[in-house]
């Protein structure tokens, strides 16, 4: 069920720290994408990477709703964003 990723889109894991971007698509299977949406990471929400944990650990995100999340880096690579 995973959605093919377009090579041109930027993903959350490579987003510069401190720069805001908008979530475009969740390239995940339906259940996992719905879980992320339920937590608050929905298409259209603005997201900023606050920091990255050491040794390839999770990302610390802040959404425009004010919610802050720790998100696994591999998962962030499946979240497409546009500046």
């Amino acid at each position: 069920m995973s959605v093919p990723m377009t090579s041109s889109a930027a993903t959350l894991d490579v987003l510069e720290v401190g720069r805001a971007a908008q979530v475009k698509a969740l390239a995940l299977d339906a259940v996992e994408a719905d879980w992320l949406r339920a937590v608050g990471l929905v298409e259209g929400v603005a997201v900023t990477v606050l920091r990255r944990a050491a040794f390839g650990g999770p990302l610390h995100l802040r959404l425009s709703t004010g919610l802050e999340l720790a998100v696994d880096r591999a998962l962030a690579a499946r979240v497409e964003v546009s500046p």
Binding site: D29, E32, W35, L36, V39, L41, P58, H60, L67, E68, L69, A70, V71, D72, A74, L75
Partner: peptide, 11 residues
């Protein structure tokens, strides 16, 4: 069950 990566609220 598939591997579920970390997603956690930081209050």
């Amino acid at each position: 069950g598939a591997s579920k990566p970390l997603v956690l609220e930081l209050p």
